[in-house]
Write a protein that binds this DNA or RNA. Structure first.
Length: 800
RNA sequence: GCGGAUGUGGCGGAAUUGGCAGACGCGCCGGAUUUAGGUUCCGGUGGGAACACCGUGCAGGUUCAACUCCUGUCAUCCGCACCA
């Protein structure tokens, strides 16, 4: 058969669409399979080969599950709010709505050309008011359940994007969007209380099937630590300084305290502090440092002693000095620490520099050289003396602290509450009204969606205010509570909002009365398998798990974990082995590949190029290799004749069906394809094949190369869709060969093979091995001291 | 610094439980077809003159047998990073 891929591909894409064969049915009697891929951000650059790889994995799994009789939901949508679109709008003067629609149309066209079996009836767009109505609805639910609060805080601010960023969006002190250095700025911020769900987010990980490194990254991100809060009295004023420590066992070794430069106690007691101007100039210096400088570059400890405030160790009433230093952060714990230089390296460095006492309380190290952080016998520690187990001493100390009322057990998380507002246009408006009398008033649900107003200028204001603030007709409104004059919130939600619950909307995308029908949620949830990039494992996934757990707690969804299983694909690198980027000119456009080699080749190559979870460089010649494979498959139509099975190929077929079936489930697509190539080679070596066998072969290949295989299926005379055919089954007993090659070793060295019947006994195998011509020279005249036999695998004769 | 992962031909990568290292593909070499190139087909392809021998980052160890297990070490990549 001539392999005219472009006409074959457009033909079958049309037929699938006309017959609507990939839409999920709300038929609750069938077993369901919900496969989810991370929906794309429709950027102007169009689809990237990385998108194809990200979707191809579950595309193949979904196609296989469909053929196995599952009711499959494999949806697609667009995460379309966000800065790049808004920036295009500003640059070109085009409405972001128009930019978004054009980009979505472009993405849709490209995705369809690859032949993905998405359910195109359920497409969602986060910027559609019918969608974001429910994003706002969930926000209001959170507000009404006390999970939203507003605070003035030092926030991560990107001076270039003029926008407040969450911690997650400013990793490494760089803006996630434009990579400029972020600065700390005091602003009014809307927060979502994600920390209230920290424990649930952590504990839920025990009940889901995520790749181990994904779980680990999430745990790391949440960053739970257990320890104690301890209150230190201050001698000169009626005040206690509260600290957090994970090492309460070392409390007798405290020789000084350190507070963050921003700690409020300094301003509160500035008239008691003799060296306030010195402190202020140090604080000034610190505030100028970027996060990057403060955390990455400064290894040398700096700080200033507070002259006029002295702390008292609550255990032994010893007076200890207080310092300010930027190695203590206001954002973690209480912004103040007790310093134990003998057993904490940072405190040690600080003490050495400032000439502070170092008291050993755990034996085992040499504190004249460095801090000792391991276990050992407690000394200089009153009631803890003699304890050797860290855990036991911590417990004893906690008991003591609680008993005396000077402290208590405490838990801290690295994760912070989620800064939720952005000073931008292209996002969901926050449905809150500021009333001079009533304060912050949530919009009634009946007023949703709160639509984005039309504006002429999308530029954010100079003071970092949203473009919406300039629209008086939007801003001025009546208070829903007292009906008096009020003003709307003008900030919008971050891009992560819409993507935090999109998988729920796919279940019932057109519902106007609820975000989804409870019966449908009950059937489809949880998502059975979610695949995406490693870069979304900490942010998007933590946010969406948080939203979902909240919805579960208010009874809006039936399961507490949204994703039963999560995997991640590896990147596609440029041909030169480095990340694809425009500036390096090594970007591959999937459109070009489809045009030149066809979608089936593109799909097959992307899954064949290497381990699905690892990064692999693009190779044009390997693309050609996959095209050759498909051409050779197309040519099978010339040799396929008759019905039934070809005896010489029977076990090869059963083996291949088994291998492909298992490998797809394990995301080992490369070896699945390799095994089909091996079978194809065997078919050509054998020079004969029945029509039934060809049909089995193309059925196995269908998830990978659906267009070509549909075409062959039709040529074989079938009228139905191969995409809906039954997945082949194998007979385990027929996967084994009757004659097997067994390796023979002498003293562990491979010397030859023997062909024997698969059910030969150990004795028969050893006897046959000794008769092998290649083996004889190595054993004749030697004493056999051991004979090892692994049936079906190998014989090892040990001689002396 | 901490945590995780990876290291196999010229290249991408295969190798259930320790059991013939290099499946499959690319590339390369030779041959056939072709005016030629391309395509296609056939044969070969870890190193090595070798049926010896050597080969899975490096050095040891356990074992009849190690890519696989153990100890140490180096390199690369990723994540977190003064988290008290």
């Amino acid at each position: 058969m001539k392999y005219d891929f472009s006409s074959i591909e457009s033909k079958w894409q049309k037929r699938w669409a006309q017959a609507d064969i990939f839409s999920a049915k709300d038929d609750f009697s069938k077993p369901k399979f919900y496969a989810l891929i991370e929906f794309p951000y429709p950027s102007g650059a169009g689809l990237h080969v990385g998108h194809i790889k990200a979707y191809s994995g579950l595309e193949v799994v979904s196609r296989k599950r469909r053929m196995q009789g599952y009711n499959v939901l494999f949806p697609i949508g667009f995460d379309a709010f966000g800065l790049p679109t808004e920036n295009t709008a500003i640059k070109t003067g085009t409405h972001p709505r128009k930019v978004t629609d054009e980009n979505i149309a472009k993405f849709t066209d490209q995705l369809k050309r690859v032949g993905f079996s998405f359910d195109w009836n359920r497409v969602i767009d986060t910027t559609d008011e019918k969608y974001y109505k429910w994003t706002q609805w969930i926000f209001l639910e959170m507000f009404n359940h006390g999970l939203v609060f507003r605070d003035t805080a030092l926030v991560n601010y990107c001076p270039s994007c003029k926008v407040v960023l969450s911690n997650e969006d400013s990793q490494g002190g760089k803006c996630d969007i434009c990579h400029s250095d972020i600065i700390q700025k005091s602003k009014d911020v809307w927060y979502l209380r994600i920390t209230q769900y920290a424990d649930k987010l952590l504990e839920g990980l025990d009940r889901v099937d995520y790749l181990p490194n994904i779980k680990m990254q999430q745990e790391n991100w949440i960053g739970k630590s257990t320890g104690a809060f301890v209150n230190f009295k201050i001698k000169e004023v009626n005040e206690t300084l509260r600290i957090y420590t994970t090492r309460p066992d070392t409390l007798f070794g405290v020789t000084f305290m350190v507070i963050a430069p921003e700690h409020p106690i300094i301003e509160k007691y500035q008239d008691k502090i003799a060296n306030i101007s010195e402190l202020n100039s140090y604080r000034e210096e610190c505030s100028k440092k970027t996060e990057f400088e403060r955390t990455q570059l400064i290894k040398d400890k700096t700080g200033v002693k507070i002259d006029g405030l002295t702390a008292i160790n609550p255990l032994n009433n010893k007076e200890i000095p207080i310092y300010i230093s930027d190695y203590v952060m206001m954002g973690y714990g209480t912004g103040a620490i007790m310093a134990v230089p003998a057993h904490d390296q940072r405190d040690y460095e600080f003490a050495k520099k400032f000439g502070i006492d170092i008291i050993e309380v755990i034996k085992g190290g040499d504190i004249s050289v460095e801090a000792y952080t391991k276990d050992g016998e407690m000394v200089n520690s009153d009631f803890l003396n003699g304890y050797t187990n860290k855990k036991a001493s911590i417990e004893r100390m906690l008991e003591y602290l609680t008993e005396k009322g000077i402290g208590e057990k405490g838990v801290q998380y690295k994760m912070k509450d989620w800064a939720f507002n952005r000073q931008r246009y292209w996002g969901e408006p926050i449905p809150i009204v500021h009333c001079p009398k009533c304060g912050m008033v949530p919009l009634p649900y009946s007023e949703l969606p709160l639509k984005l107003p039309e504006v002429k200028n999308y530029e954010p204001g100079e003071g970092g205010e949203s473009p919406l603030a300039k629209i008086e007709s939007f801003v001025n409104c009546k208070c829903p509570k007292c009906k008096g004059d009020a003003k709307r919130e003008t900030d919008t939600m971050p891009q992560w909002a819409g993507s935090s619950w999109y998988f729920l909307r796919y279940i019932d995308p057109k519902n106007d009365n609820a975000f989804a029908d409870p019966e449908k949620l009950k059937y489809w949830l949880p998502v059975d398998w979610y695949n995406g990039g490693m870069e979304h494992v900490t942010r998007h996934m933590i946010y969406s798990r948080f939203w979902h757990k909240f919805l579960y707690d208010i009874g809006a969804v039936p399961v507490d974990e949204p994703y039963a299983k999560r995997t991640a694909q590896g990147m596609i690198l440029g041909a030169n082995g480095v990340k694809m980027s425009k500036s390096l000119g090594n970007v591959v456009d999937p459109n070009d590949v489809v045009k030149e080699y066809g979608a089936d080749t593109l799909r097959t190559y992307i899954l064949f190029m290497g381990d699905y979870g690892s990064a692999a460089p693009w190779s044009e010649s390997s693309v050609k290799g996959c095209k050759r494979f498909l051409e050779r498959v197309a040519d099978l139509t010339a040799i396929a004749k008759g019905k039934g099975t070809t005896p010489a190929l029977e076990s090869s077929f059963h083996k291949t069906i088994k291998k492909v079936s298992e490998d797809i489930e394990a995301l080992k697509f490369n070896t699945a394809i390799a095994s089909m190539m091996t079978l194809l080679n065997a078919i050509y070596d054998n020079c004969s094949l029945t029509v039934d066998e060809l049909d089995t072969f193309i059925t196995l290949l269908c998830p990978f190369a659906p267009h070509l295989t549909e075409e062959i299926h039709e040529q074989l005379g079938y009228k139905d869709f191969l995409s809906l055919a039954k997945w082949p089954e194998y007979d385990e007993s027929k996967t084994a060969d009757s004659i097997v090659e067994v390796a023979v070793q002498v003293c562990g060295k491979f010397r030859g093979t023997i062909s024997v019947s698969a059910d030969s006994s150990k004795e028969e195998l050893i006897a046959a091995a000794k008769e092998c011509d290649r083996v004889k020279p190595y054993i004749t005249g030697k004493t056999i001291i051991k004979e090892i036999c692994v049936p079906g695998k190998l014989v090892n004769i040990v001689v002396k």
